[in-house]
Each structure stands twice: as structure tokens, then as C-alpha cells.
Nucleic acid binder design. Structure first.
Lengths: 323, 323
DNA sequence: GGAAAGACCGCACACGTTTTCCGTCGTTGA
DNA sequence: TCAACGACGGAAAACGTGTGCGGTCTTTCC
């Protein structure tokens, strides 16, 4: 079980001080002469010393690790969020680990026990859906991202879907389009309902609920064409792509005859569509950054409470702009 | 810095034994009477005791954690691999954490230092490409998955791409197709070259190299149609989808006139294509499971050396079968 | 009845770091 | 010159668990 790693005592010996002093020198604590500090630092550099996280965790109680707990097994949402989280945390020398619960409550419990047992400093909880979710019960700082906690005293960061949907309508209005149809996913999905509501508020029109697929986009196109629209706002990029395909098949040109907007700005869909889709970017990295910032504050003892809504960004492409 | 968690001494006190004895009872070591073991177990259950991973790690040297280090920032490949890894490791009470290097060598170094410092038991290295990659230099068990190490003494698990490509050709031959074209990605991508080579060996035909996009699939379709093929084998599902779209536009029916095969079995592409694509599934979860198994053996002191090629699986759908 | 053997469990240290407390030395002011 | 004080660094405890070693008690055999 020998670990050949260089330890604090080795650094201390080389610098001619005690282990405790070396620790203080490297962490900028205690009161030491600048000369001693430098000497220890040089010794550490010479030996390539990296403090053992196990000892440090046991002693200080901090592990300098936070977990991103996700139910999004595809990574479509959690990976960008993780990038944002990492951006903020790595600056503070914290490591980020991703744990995928696969939407399995048992697996989630297992992970939580494990995370508490190993003493992570905090947890960011996220999911594949925007539905508020049950809070997790751990004696640790927690921030919810994308899917808020049902408990309003928790800290949550979510996307302002209503504003995002409203922005697409405003954009279409700005292009002079007035007969706008809305095709979206299942009515019982919060992300569908919330966006549809915002659209309805601006248009006084009835949204068409279905599922998130291209197939549904194609089918719904046939339905809405009876209303002779000059624009179709879609609840997802997949739906929008199906709409574009169907319109092209029927001889309608996008965006000249009918403009189309997507939602999510999922590159693999929005860019592959013909034409490429104007879409609403969720700014998931911003979401991650904000969540990480709140988590850091909570770890520092200043917890935040309530739900924070972050703005989206409209990305305009050929599906509304012409070439 | 107080941690109110229940500790080994609390369990021991409740069971009327010493902490050391409680430890042995719970880990099934030492020689204790069955009655004492049970008593300690009951006490632990009553108190909801979970051993503190920090103390355990410091004492035993094991952290019961392995890292999955990936360069695949999309998660397209690393997430399924992680699922496989987890399947194997969670049975042994090991936790799996995912670290995304974003293909940045500096970030990779940072992660490695961190992982070594915190004493993970082992590392699975994977990537977004199948190109062999430089080995990582850490004093820990390492297994490479999907992208092999350039050092043949390391343990690597990769996909048998040549066999996968050969299987699609065999499948097409079985359907009586003989004039088969091959459209694939960049020639300098190993995954393109390896698959193309296998196809060429079976067909004595020239592959068309381009990029992995649907656009290229559409463009290349126009080129290969001059050869009057009765099947088109594609290097990726995206290319195949573009091929299908273009063929439909030109009035060719798939699979009646021309059969089409994809590669990767990426659901979002293979299923959304019209018609759905016959494709080669990479069995990434199997890859992860195998890598995890090898890693466990390496951790147990029985390291494996060399490259292991795992079989793929041909998934047949309407693009070759008719409805 | 005594001794040897075996079953069982406690003691104490190890792991590596952090942090508190205290001792020592040099300096300064009275 | 002596006391007080500040600056500096060492010693040791603490974090929680794992484990080797040895001690005690019971049992068994001669």
C-alpha cells in the first residue's frame, strides 16, 4: 500500500522547516517570514509536490470538489452546464465531477450517499426537463439548475422560457409576419406549455401540441397550412426541422413564403436543417456559471434563496432572414 | 467545521465494542464472533452509518472511485461508455466520475494532477475520435477505451470498425445488391479510413471522402449516381441521412431502388432519417463494461496488456429492408 | 488441576494534512 | 538593564478509518 508520492514532510525537510510550517507557507496562512515562505515554495516546486487530497480533506473538511448531479443521460443539457460550472470553479481550484442518475431514484440515492460520504463541498442538481423537481435532502449546499426545486427556499437557476418564446414572436413581427402558427411538444411538458403560453399571449392563437419529433413537425405543417400562415414558430429545433422539410416538399419556400423558428439552438438540428434555423439559445453555459457562483457563495456561508431566471438569446439564421 | 455525521465510534459505542472491532465487523475482516458482527451491523443500520470516505481513503489508500477522462465534449461517445463503466463498477461499490478535458492538453494535465492527488483507484481514458492517442503518464492503473494508446503495452479496448463495415457490405450482398458505392468522412480520420479500407477490400471500389455532414451526403449522392449503384454504404449516419434526403428529392426510392446504410447508430440521426437507417451500432456500453472489467483487474494487481477489439452490431431498419 | 490452544476483541499506531497553542528569540522602550 | 511585546516557527492534536499485535477468557486435553 505504499504511495511513493512526495509528502509535506519531504518538502519541509528540504526547506529545513517542520511540516506544519510548510503547510502554512504553501497555504499563505499563519505568520511566517517571506523568506521562509519562498524557501518552502521553492522546495515544493523542486519536488513537484502536490498535497494529498485525502489528508487535506480529512483535516480541513473541505474536499475542493463539487458534483453535478444530472438526470439527463444524453448529456444534451448537462454537458454545456458542466462547462459553465467548470469555468467558474476551476478558477478556485475546485474540481467538478459529473454523476448521471439515469433518472433512476434509487441510483440518485446511491449517488447522494456516496457524495455525502466523500464530503463534496456542494452539489449542482440538473435535469433534462424544466419541470420543478423534488429537493434533495442532504446536509450540503445545493443549487438547482435548469429544473428548479419545488421548495422556494432552495436556490435555483432556470431559463426564462417565456421571454425566449416572446422574443421569437417579436422577431417575426419585426419581419412583418402576422399570421403566425405555433407547433410544439406535449402540453404536459412545462417547457412546451410555458413557451406556448407566451406565444399565445402575443398572438391570441391556439398552439398545436404533439411531441418533440420531426415527424410531428411534418404532420402539423399540413394542419397549420390551412390557416395560410406567413410564419411558423416551433417549440423545438427538431419540430422546426420537420416543418422546413415538409414545406419544401410542398413547394413553399422558407423564409420567403413562410418563416420558421426553432427553439433550443441544438447545433446538430439547427445547422443541419434546410435552411438553417433561427432559434433560441438557452445559454446553458451561463446557467452553469451562475449556478456555480451561487454554490460558491453558499459554500462560503452566504446561501442564496429563490429562483433566478436567466435570459435566452435569439440566434437568427436563414430560416427567417433569407440568404 | 463540525460534521455531524455518525462515526465509527458511535456505532461501536452503541454495539458496546471498540471502534477497531466495529470496523472489522463491518468489513468482514479480522476474527470476530458472528454474534458481535451482527450486533455491530444492527447498530450501524440503526444509526444509518455510512463510513466517511475521507478517513477510509487516507487509511486504506483506496478511494473506491475511478475517473472517466474524456476529450469528447459532446458526450456523444463518452456518455454511453460511462454507462457501461458504471454498470460494472457500481456492483463493486466503486463510484465513477466523468472529467471532460475539452480536448485541451493543459486541462487534461490539470485533471490528471487532481485525480492523482485525490488518489482515484484508476482511470479510463476515452475520446471522440478513434485515433490512437498518447499515453497518459500517471502512477495508476489506466485503460484506454475507443481510442487506443499508442503504447502497445498499455491496455486498450477499441471497436472493430473494419468488421463493422464489412458486415454492412455482407448485409447488402445478402440482399442481392452488387453495385455498392461508399461515401464517408475525411480520409485522414482513422474511423473513415479503416471503414473505407474494409469496404474497398470487399468491393474493389473507390470510396468518396468528404466530411461527416448531411450536406456532403447530399452532394456525394449526385456524384455516385452516375455509377448507377443499387446500394450506398455511408461512413456515418449523418452522411446516410443526407443521401436519403437527396435520393428522395431525385425520385429514387429507398430501399427499393437504392439501399442505404449508415454507421454509428446515432438514434437522433438513424431514427429521424426517412426511411430509418440500417446502421452499425458501436456497442459503446459493452466497450465501457469491458474497459471497467480490465481496470478492476489492473487495480487488483493483474494488469492486462495490448489492444482488445470488440465486435459491433448491425441494426437493420427500413433503409435496407423495405417496410 | 494445570497447561496449552484457540477464539475473540481492544489497544495503539498509521495514513497526510491542517491548525491551535505555545515556546523562543530578537527588538524596543522605560 | 530589564520587562514587555511582537515576530516567527515547532510540537502536537485532530480529522475518521483500517489493521497488526498482543492480551484475556474460555475450552479442552493430558
Amino acid at each position: 500500500m505504499k504511495r511513493p508520492g512526495v509528502r509535506m514532510v519531504d518538502v519541509a525537510a528540504l526547506a529545513g522547516v517542520s511540516a506544519g510550517t510548510a503547510s502554512k507557507a504553501l497555504s499563505n496562512t499563519g505568520q511566517l517570514s517571506q523568506e521562509t515562505r519562498d524557501r518552502v515554495r521553492r522546495a515544493a516546486a523542486t519536488l513537484g509536490f502536490t498535497p494529498d487530497a485525502r489528508g487535506r480533506a480529512l483535516s480541513s473538511g473541505r474536499t475542493y470538489t463539487v458534483a453535478l448531479l444530472t438526470t439527463d443521460s444524453s448529456g444534451r443539457f448537462s454537458i454545456p452546464i458542466m462547462r459553465g460550472v467548470e469555468d467558474v470553479l476551476s478558477a478556485g481550484e475546485l474540481a467538478t465531477v459529473l454523476c448521471d442518475t439515469r433518472d433512476d431514484p434509487l441510483r440518485e440515492q446511491t449517488y447522494l450517499r456516496s457524495l455525502v460520504a466523500r464530503g463534496v463541498d456542494g452539489i449542482v442538481v440538473t435535469g433534462r426537463r424544466t419541470e420543478p423537481r423534488a429537493r434533495i435532502d442532504v446536509p450540503l449546499p445545493v443549487v438547482y439548475a435548469l429544473a428548479a426545486s419545488t421548495d422556494p427556499t432552495d436556490a435555483s437557476v432556470i431559463v426564462d422560457d417565456a421571454a425566449g418564446a416572446a422574443a421569437t414572436i417579436a422577431h417575426l413581427h419585426g419581419l412583418g409576419r402576422t399570421r403566425i402558427a405555433h407547433i410544439t411538444g406535449p402540453a404536459h411538458h412545462r417547457s412546451a406549455a410555458e413557451r406556448a403560453e407566451a406565444v399565445a399571449a402575443a398572438l391570441c392563437t391556439e398552439p398545436l401540441y404533439g411531441d418533440w419529433s420531426e415527424r410531428w413537425g411534418r404532420q402539423a405543417t399540413d394542419l397549420v397550412l390551412r390557416q395560410n400562415p406567413d410564419a411558423i414558430s416551433c417549440g423545438s429545433d427538431q419540430i422546426a426541422r420537420g416543418v422546413c422539410d415538409r414545406l419544401r416538399e410542398l413547394g413553399h419556400s422558407v423564409p420567403e413564403d413562410i418563416a420558421v423558428t426553432g427553439y433550443d439552438n441544438w447545433p446538430v438540428m439547427a445547422l443541419a436543417s434546410r435552411p438553417p434555423l433561427t432559434s433560441v439559445d438557452l445559454r446553458l453555459e451561463d446557467l452553469g456559471r451562475r449556478a456555480a457562483t451561487l454554490l460558491l457563495e453558499a459554500i462560503a456561508g452566504k446561501p442564496h434563496h429563490g429562483v433566478l431566471e436567466l435570459p435566452t438569446q435569439l440566434i437568427t439564421r436563414e430560416s427567417t432572414l433569407g440568404t
